[in-house]
Amino acid sequence: MKAAAFEYQRAESVEQACAALAEHGFDAKLIAGGQSLVPMMAMRLARPALLIDINRIAELTTSSEHGDHAVLGACARQQSVKQDQRLAARVPMLRAALAWVGHIQTRNRGTIGGSLAHADPSAELPLAACVLDARIVLRKKGSTRTVAGADFFVAPMQTAAETDECLTEVHWPLWGEQRVGCAFDEVSARHGDFAMVAAAAQVQTGEDGRCTRAAFGLGGVDAVPRAFPDLAARLVGSALAAQDIEAAANTAAGEIEPGEDLHASAAYRRHLARVLVTRVLSVARDRSRVSGANAQ
């Protein structure tokens, strides 16, 4: 399997990448880590006439903090984010999700922004972005806009990004490090494979153990990753007791419309959704009550 012929440009800056996108439009494609795009080109599912390489744009690999969120450059490598101790403490969901992403060889190349832009409905990072409602920054020639995680994913492999836009940053909300717990879990045929169903949760609890903030969601069960902000809001004020969590999990499993394939029936995916939501909410609750429990 070999890719069809294409031309190649290495962009030295975001401006240069955006100018090339503006000029070539639909015929051009950005390449970051290439861990999804290169196989798609090999299988000729993608045939861009021009590949614009954004791997060496220095500003896309930086990370910083601004007020209530951590800013991660689109080309931050998955493995370096996974190993980043500061980020693990500040946005524990990243390491929790990345533990399920690919293998060392793919994480060494794969990027945070690339995974979001690829928008596989069963991928882990899009689910994390939806659950935390991360903000996704899109730049094009002459303008910049920010899209909420919940609005970014439109359909399988389709996002709100226009063909002339470059995903430059992801803003991950900071929940603080005290009494916050998060958990990510999934079922797949083999570790590192695409999830049949994935679930993620983050909760904050008060001194009395009651929930003060909650977010959770499911991947692999719909055309796009699903967050359940209304159900999560109902958990606030509860003790996050087994029956509170089970009620949320049952309702969420009832709201999804999973597809079926050779690997899993719709009924089995719904079952997994219920089990996994119960599990991640319970683990996140327990971790919120033990200092430092997320960083493992």
Binding site: M1, K2, A3, Y8, R10, I31, G34, Q35, V38, P39, A42, M43, L51, D53, N55, Q79, H103, I104, Q105, T106, N108, R109
Partner: peptide, 29 residues
């Protein structure tokens, strides 16, 4: 496999293991 599944093509790129079927030679310049 030529599509990033089997790992047989793994090489070190700047000291880190990567799949050499999932990157174009021009990118390794």
């Amino acid at each position: 496999c030529e599509h990033g599944v089997c790992g047989a093509c793994s090489v070190m790129l700047d000291g880190e293991p990567v799949r050499s079927c999932c990157m174009f030679a021009v990118q390794a310049d």
